[in-house]
Design a protein around this nucleic acid. Sequence first.
DNA 1: AGCAATGTACGATGGGGATCGAACATTCAG
DNA 2: CTGAATGTTCGATCCCCATCGTACATTGCT
Lengths: 111, 111
Amino acid sequence: MPEQAAAAGHRPAPVHTHPDDVPVLTALSALADPVRMDLIRTLADHSDWTLSCSNFDVSVGRAAKSHHFSVLRDAGLVEQRDQGTKRLNRLRREEFDARFPGLLDLVLRAD
Amino acid sequence: MPEQAAAAGHRPAPVHTHPDDVPVLTALSALADPVRMDLIRTLADHSDWTLSCSNFDVSVGRAAKSHHFSVLRDAGLVEQRDQGTKRLNRLRREEFDARFPGLLDLVLRAD
DNA sequence: AGCAATGTACGATGGGGATCGAACATTCAG
DNA sequence: CTGAATGTTCGATCCCCATCGTACATTGCT
């Protein structure tokens, strides 16, 4: 059994799910949370790749925040890219809109 | 003749919430459930007031089913009317669409 | 090298909600 | 009136998920 230690090097790139592969139930569940709705709205108010995770000012700790971003990735809502020690974010607006027309607008529309 | 209010006759009419008074989070949470999505889809396939609660063939007992209908009422998705011992249902499609455009279509669209 | 910053992974905890069974109320049929 | 059918309500249970604290990994800076 070839025991090779971690072929060290990079930090594991974030795993993404394309909106086309996301069931409706998953999308709705991801959006049906106050913290995640907050993240999505903040994300929509800034340009792509301008916000790292730590820039989001939500009322939970780092661990919970990381979990929420994972849920958003799995729902095809957010794309992430590593840059230095930071992880930059982008709202997958067009792709998600194509899969679930109107859903994102509904969440972003202030009411 | 004015009757004694003591042990009045009727069964309490179901309490409804108009879609206009429903927060987005409530609507999304109501729809983010497999059983309730099933109920909504079945409801959409039948004319108004043609289905009583017992007509819905879901994999849960009566108590849970009653709970789900309560959630759907609170989310402005379903209207109910008593007729005899049965409680007839109607999907509030237009009112809900006016409040949350595209959301219902998204759930009903078979994919 | 050491150190701070950023983010993830893991275990533990708490709360909310989905479910059930049973008891109850209402309505109708006989 | 008796019984069956339909739903609701209540208590109890269970499970998922949001959260936290800590430990750990990676990166960059000095």
